[in-house]
Structures are given as C-alpha cells and as structure tokens.
Nucleic acid binder design. Structure first.
Lengths: 111, 111
DNA sequence: CCATGATATATAGTCGCACCACATATGGCC
DNA sequence: GGCCATATGTGGTGCGACTATATATCATGG
C-alpha cells in the first residue's frame, strides 16, 4: 500500500545474522532468502548487502570464505562467529525491547 | 545491559505522533512522556526532539502554537493535523509489518 | 552462437535519522 | 545566590540504507 519500504535501522543486520544462523550462505542467497521469507514486505536491496557483509566481517561477527566450484562462478560463503552468535541473541532481545516499548508508548497492538 | 540504546530509524517519529494523538503537548512534555511510558528502555534525547518536531511540522503532520502563561516560560504546543493522523495510522501498520516480517525472517518470537 | 536474463559480487555517491556537544533562558527550592 | 528541573534551540558527526552503476559468469532459447 504505502510505497514506503524503508528498512528500519539495524533490521537488515538482524536478518542477515539470522539467516546464516544454521548454515553458511553466500551473499546473493542471503538476499534471496530474506526476500522470500518476508513475503516481499521487506525489499532488501542487493546494493546494501555487500557493504553490510564487509561491515559485519570487519566487526568479527561473521567470516567469509571463497568457494570455487566447476560450473559456477566463485561465491563467498559467510558463517557466524561465536561473537556473531552472541550479537544475534542480543539483537533479538533489543528488537523485543523495542517492540514492547513501542506497544506501550505508541499503542502498537501486540498481536 | 548492552550499551546499545540506539533508536531504530523512524521509531522516535512514531512515538511522538502517538503521544500527541489525544491531546496537544509541548516538546519537553513529549520527551518526558516517552521516557516514562517506555520505562526508560527508550531514552529519547532532547537534542533529537526539536529538529524532529520542525521536520514533522514542515511535512504538515503536526502544527505548533506558542502558549504564554504567567508563571512559566513560553511553550510550544503541538497537535496532529488530519494528514498527521493518516500518517500515524500508516506508520503503525508499517511497524506491524516490520515486526511480522522480522518474526518470520529472523525468528523473533511473537510473544 | 549470440542475446537475454538470472546469478553473483563490487564501488561511488547521496540522503536522512539519531547522536553528542553546546547554547540560552526561566522558575522553584534550599 | 547557587543548583536543579524546565524549556527551546543550533551545529556537527556517524552511520545505515538508498540509488545508480559496473563487472562477470552461467543457463536458456531462438
């Protein structure tokens, strides 16, 4: 409806960390997963993705390694570090707290 | 716990619109309300407040008027415009959509 | 076999939100 | 008289997400 598909600050980060929680994935696959799982509500622009992956790697939350396979171009697979796991848990808590606060302050129905 | 008390993008906006939904309020009072209602989870810095009020007024979502009373310094009371009401409703929907999506994509328990 | 589209990674530049630091001013309290 | 809470305001910074653009490979079809 509203053509306002801005991501809120940090939400993309949380999603990326979450989708590589169980298994390593490469960039393009991460973006596709988010698109799929969100049902198109959240458009995650690829152009934002790679700078973010580098950022997360620079912080030590994820690590990437190049995988070359015959029949396809090189891909970089990212996985969570232990620190990344901690941050994922923390960010989930943070978002919960935000949601709770918004429910109280702004009358967001908690359905 | 975590020293990460960053507000997510647009959350402050939603809160401001919501707290003046029923009655006009002046800036300082708005900030205090948010602090109170959120139980201190969300620290809304006054320095962010006034620029935001001007922004919302420039967009035509709120209007302010000066009120001078004996025994206290001048205050500017803001109230929602009809457009502001529309935007408030829309932003609530947006945040709902975001949380629903985060629940699906990032495994945020919908408690 | 060449064109097109999906896959895959990457960089440059811009915009807007929230931050911190600082500034100014008045009323109430001890 | 000094301090704190109240109340509004400005300047600069940091950073996340955006648009636009670039490069390259693989699969498909005409």
């Amino acid at each position: 409806m509203a053509p306002k598909d801005d991501l809120k600050k940090g939400s993309a980060e949380l999603m990326v960390l979450a989708v590589i929680e169980d298994a390593p994935r490469h960039g393009y696959d991460i973006a596709r997963s988010i698109d799929d799982r969100s049902g198109g509500v959240l458009r995650f622009h690829v152009a934002s993705l790679y700078p973010m992956l580098y950022r997360l790697e620079r912080r030590g939350w994820i690590t990437g390694r190049w995988v070359e396979k015959a029949g396809q171009r090189r891909r970089r697979y990212y996985r969570l570090t232990p620190e990344g796991r901690r941050m994922l848990r923390q960010q989930r808590n943070e978002w919960h707290a935000l949601f709770d606060a918004l429910t109280r302050v702004a009358g967001l129905e908690p359905r």
